[in-house]
Design a protein around this nucleic acid. Structure first.
Length: 629
RNA sequence: GCUGGCGUAGCUCAGUGGUAGAGCAGGUGAUUUGUAAUCACCAGGUCGGGGGUUCGAAUCCCUCCGCCAGCUCCA
């Protein structure tokens, strides 16, 4: 029964020994014994297989951060003895701990003091001890400690025996496992504080949450903070201002985007690209209004199920109208405009449809969560037999489109039937099978989210990972068994009978606003040549070369490139700096030498001087770059 | 919506009860430039809006609006 160190070295072990006493490596944080996570202080029994886990493993990190959250809690209790403990789990990046403080909150100074105290607790290098005790005894313990939230948690547990962890005078109800000593945490930082609700319930007590991060080395913390800086540098809200892409104004209203010329141009390029690809694949463009009568939304069910997300009604000539939160009812009206034959199916209506949804003020966020946005929406009406091929087609198009933007890392989720649903189980099975089949045939690995589908149909979502590995929810393909029923959609089949078509909602990039936000951060504002609002800036060294510069500019413009001539009487270095900061892909510097030899001096953004070439050579260089992207 | 923080020139920010500031951007003029900032001058503000306290408010209090972090929500 050997123990294998993270270094690969094997150590003999006997029953009754503590894992901690057998290993030398300080990297081991926690152990997996016969598939169960245990503290390193665990005493071995017969025939147990031990795997040591380091910070490089998810379990190791979770344990590490979980212990860090206990250290945080201890620090808070030492400063604020009246603070009530609630829960403090590890999260994807770090950990948090929620405290009940009554009306009190943590000030920035409090947080600094708490962080200092936490570091002190780490210095004390306290032993962390696991203790198991009967539930009733634990309840008494936490009652004595005046920790009502812990008591509440305990009372709801089914287990007869529970565990607590002690470090110094601090004790917390916890399943564990934990690190052996507080000193294992070498780098510790309090990140932020905010409010949270007890058990996530808005009506429940308001808790104060402190977020933190911790690492086994100072270097890892530095690196993490550096990554945060990088993410901040890429923030689309900052870059949107710097690059003059879009804005919001209080006068127009929160969550309502103003696309400035440079942003609008990029959007238009994306629209054109999407439009052409959709045409190639048999989609038919349609246009529909922004408002519709109440009866439409009554029939669709939106007034019953979605009203709190809709802008309020407008009244005109005694008729109620609503601004559309979705495009589907309109596309359905077009479908219904005449009797449909099975020969026409599948019908694929596409529209860059602008919708308005009332989002609670606190959830708005830059371009990623807005109140008015334009979806690359389409609705497919198909026979049950066609459904699988249609889904495959949509996935194929989605992957093709996303790849064009350099997005190739996805997570795929298939959401299945919830408890409350419309349609028949047979329809759900057919649709869910089609989604699974299509995902498999498309070579996608996926996760099933049991019961997470909307009441009207199962769906498949793609979560995109950007260049920094952050997730974005964009693509969604969604069955709808509800609306065809509500609007009584039919097609005439080959036997002359009316049958119900299956309806599929789908959006690939989701919404232009959110996708633009994603792209800005993904590219860090350095748009590839095909998307850049200005592809080339021509910089004459002095006014003497303006005519030649105009020549060059016109030639490139004539070839279809987006070119700007910087005629200002500034020094070349000044102009270069400015256009570098505006992240223009190419600058052409022209002066005496270039004029005489009929060339341009090429400077590539982020790279620098590429030497001189003729305008024709530069053009083919651009062409090549466009082709390869 | 909730909790906390914030709101000063187009932008980034300084100013904590006593005469509203800086840098950049903008305008005008000079300069004619060789790979990331030429110089001078000028203009620019109901200090987010409203109300209050005070001899006096950017500064303190109330309220509304907006932004930020998080929670909740995300048909």
């Amino acid at each position: 029964m050997p123990i294998i160190e993270p270094s690969g070295e094997q150590k003999p072990a006997k029953p009754g020994q503590r894992i901690l006493d057998l290993i030398e490596s300080p990297e081991a944080l926690v152990a997996e014994v016969n598939g169960r996570l245990v503290d390193l202080s665990y005493r071995l029994q017969d025939d147990e297989e031990v795997r040591l886990l380091t910070f490089e493993t998810p379990q190791g990190r979770e344990t590490f951060w979980h212990t860090a959250s206990h250290i945080l809690a201890q620090a808070v209790k030492e400063f604020f003895p009246h603070a009530k403990l609630t829960i403090g789990p590890p999260i994807e990046q770090g950990f948090y701990y929620d405290f009940y403080l009554g009306d009190q909150t943590f000030s920035p100074e409090d947080l600094e003091a708490i962080e200092a105290k936490a570091k002190e607790i780490i210095q004390r290098d306290l032993e962390i001890v696991r203790e198991e005790l009967p539930k009733e005894e634990a309840i008494r313990l936490f009652k004595d400690l005046n920790e009502p939230f812990k008591v509440e948690l305990l009372q709801e547990m089914d287990e007869d025996v529970v565990s607590v962890y002690r470090q110094g005078s601090f004790v917390d109800l916890c399943r564990g496992p934990h690190l052996p000593r507080t000193g294992y945490v070498r780098a510790f930082k309090v990140l932020s504080a905010s409010a949270a609700y007890w058990r996530g319930d808005e009506r429940g007590p308001v808790l104060q949450r402190i977020y933190g991060i911790a690492f086994p080395t100072e270097e890892a913390l530095e690196e993490y903070l550096h990554r945060l800086e990088e993410a901040k540098r890429r923030d689309h809200r900052t870059l949107g201002k710097q690059l003059d892409l879009f804005s919001f104004t209080p006068e127009v209203g929160p969550g309502l985007v103003l696309w400035h010329p440079r942003g609008a141009l990029i959007r238009r390029i994306i629209e054109d690209f999407l439009f052409q690809e959709h045409l190639k694949r048999g989609y038919q463009p349609v246009y529909t209004p922004h408002v519709g009568r109440a009866v439409l939304w009554q029939t669709s069910g939106h007034l019953d199920f979605y009203r709190e997300n809709m802008y309020p009604s407008m009244e005109l000539e005694n008729e109620e109208y609503f601004v559309k939160p979705m495009n589907c009812p309109f596309h359905i009206q077009i479908y219904k405009s005449k009797l449909r034959s099975y020969r026409e199916l599948p019908i694929r209506y596409m529209e860059f449809g602008t919708v308005y949804r009332f989002e609670r003020s606190g959830v708005l966020h830059g371009l990623t969560r807005v109140r008015g946005f334009t979806q690359d929406d389409a609705h497919i009406f198909a026979t049950p037999e066609q459904v699988e091929d249609e889904i495959i087609g949509v996935i194929d198009l989605a992957l093709f489109v996303l790849k064009r933007f350099g997005l190739e890392n996805f997570e795929v989720f298939i959401s299945t039937r919830p408890e409350k649903y419309v349609g028949t189980p047979e329809m759900w099975d057919l649709a869910t099978r089609a989604l699974i089949q299509a995902a498999e045939k498309s070579g996608l690995s996926y996760e099933i989210e049991e019961g997470e589908g909307a009441f009207y149909g199962p769906k498949i979502d793609l979560t995109i990972r950007d260049a920094l590995g952050r997730p974005w929810q964009c693509t969604t393909i969604q069955f709808d068994f509800n609306l065809p029923e509500k609007f009584n959609l039919v097609f005439r089949d080959s036997e002359g009978k009316d049958r119900r078509p299956i309806m599929i909602h789908r959006a690939l990039i989701g919404a232009f606003e959110r996708f633009f936000g994603l792209l800005i951060e993904h590219y860090a504002g350095n748009f590839p040549l095909w998307l850049a609002p200005e592809q080339v800036v021509v910089i004459p060294i002095s006014e003497k070369f303006l005519t030649y510069a105009e020549n060059v500019t016109q030639k490139l413009q004539g070839a279809g490139f987006r070119v700007l001539l910087d005629r200002r009487s500034e020094k070349m270095g000044y102009k270069i700096r400015e256009h570098e900061m505006q992240k223009v892909p190419y600058m052409l510097i022209v002066g005496k030498r270039e004029q005489e030899s009929g060339t341009v001096s090429v400077r590539k953004h982020g790279v620098g001087d590429m030497g001189t070439m003729t305008v024709e050579e530069f053009q083919s260089h651009l062409q090549e770059e466009l082709q390869s992207s």
